[in-house]
Amino acid sequence: MASGARSSLHSFLALLVLLPLVVLSAAAAVSYETKSMDPGLVVMALPEPVSGPESLAFDGRGGGPYSGVSDGRVLRWDGGLRGWTVYAYNSKHKSVALCGPDKKLVVPESVCGRPLGLQFHRRSGELYVADAYLGLLRVPARGGLAEVVAAEAGGEPFNFLNGLDVDQRTGDVYFTDSSTTYQRSDYLLVVALGDETGRLLRYNRRARRVEVLRAGLSYPNGVAVGGDGEHVVVAHTALCELRRHWVRGPRAGASETFVELPGYPDNVRADGRGGYWVALSKGAGVAAGAGAAPTVAVRVSPEGNVTEALEGFSFVSVSEVAERGGALWVGSVDTPYAGELRRRRPSV
């Protein structure tokens, strides 16, 4: 398909995607507090020309955040003076000339890889990365070259790896393959055409193999390990909901709707209180009219209720919100920066 035709198709599909959201947002009764995230937001600009800090992770010592960016590398935030430094890279950066670190070109992400979800296994110090094109990657504790630990499951190659979390008790890695039909570059088709070929996967760290926990899913995206270790919460983007998938114990294999959301969910992170922060790629603000700040994230309680929402103009679209150290750390696949929103003043 010609690039112009593809662009027109994507614009048309984007409109189709937004129409049901307007109905959803107008009908939803908002019974939670909405706060603006722009006051107090500290912006952490990425080095040019990279962009898109889609997911954020912190190491076992609290360092970071770390984030994958548009040229396929993983960067680490080293504070305001040093900014972002290179922490990890994949084999393409050594074998493909266009992906070399000295190149300042904007290269198609399918060439150099696109790291999306990532999380540390704190005990070993290893960082696991879901690369949309290259597969499940593992970075050694001191950073450097990321190795591919899995590229298929159940005899079917990965096609669109997306969300990822690590069970810190077992070291198992839970991740999603959003579609076995469409790649990340055609993510709009996954939503607009009702694709249901996504998979929930688990990498058994001890056995070094991948299991398909559930197949035939509607756009599984972000994933977070539940506090009991028996279930994971998965964002199903096209359904505008979080689902709870039971992965261990007597209910293993069962799933249920956990909460319906006022927008399309992206990544999910535990909030440290038994609940979750859920990023919304498009939120309730879409239906509020011109000039309204979009809802970019919500907090969900352990009982499955939306208890708080964030809105803002700095991030029209948010991919992840992570709570750590009295602050919210914000990533977006669409911006050349990440952000820190301080929730309270530090004690003196």
Rank of each mutant, 00 (worst) to 15 (best):
Y264M: 06
G274V: 05
G60L: 05
A215M: 05
W329I: 07
T295V: 09
S91A: 14
G163I: 06
S91R: 10
L116G: 08
E147G: 12
E308A: 08
L310R: 01
G249R: 14
G274L: 04
A297D: 00
A141C: 04
V86H: 13
G339N: 09
G113S: 10
P262R: 00
F120M: 10
E340W: 15
V330T: 01
S67F: 08
N267H: 05
W277N: 01
L41K: 02
V139M: 14
S319W: 00
L164E: 11
F313N: 04
G80Q: 13
L56E: 09
Y187S: 05
R82F: 12
D167M: 14
D59L: 12
T181Q: 02
T307L: 09
A254R: 14
G331E: 00
A2K: 01
H245M: 10
S31P: 03
V22P: 12
D59V: 13
V316L: 02
A207L: 15
D131N: 02
G291W: 01
T170D: 09
E256Q: 13
D102I: 11
E33Y: 01
G52K: 01
A235V: 03
L98S: 15
W84V: 05
D78W: 10
L161I: 10
M1C: 11
A309D: 00
D266Q: 03
K103P: 03
K104M: 13
L239V: 10
S11A: 15
Y174G: 15
L200I: 06
G289M: 07
R214D: 06
G52A: 08
S95I: 05
S317I: 00
E230Q: 12
V107S: 07
G63A: 14
S301F: 04
F313S: 06
L217M: 14
C99E: 11
L164F: 10
A130W: 07
T180E: 05
S124T: 15
G198T: 06
R202P: 07
E340Y: 13
A57T: 10
S281V: 08
P294G: 02
A207H: 14
V148D: 06
A97V: 13
V17H: 10
L81C: 15
N221H: 12
R61Y: 13
L116I: 15
R61N: 14
F175V: 13
H121K: 13
G291I: 01
A88R: 03
H236R: 12
L75F: 07
E48C: 11
S317C: 06
G125F: 11
G216T: 05
L16P: 09
L134W: 02
A288Q: 09
V306M: 02
G144W: 08
A287D: 02
G100S: 15
E147N: 12
G144M: 11
R299D: 04
G117D: 08
T197K: 04
G253T: 12
Q183F: 06
L188I: 08
R61C: 15
V190D: 04
V129N: 10
A57N: 09
L24M: 02
F158G: 02
D195V: 06
E54W: 07
T237M: 08
R76F: 13
R206T: 11
S314L: 12
P157Q: 01
L75V: 06
G274Q: 04
E230T: 12
D78F: 15
L217P: 05
K92W: 06
L81N: 10
V148H: 03
V106G: 09
Y337T: 05
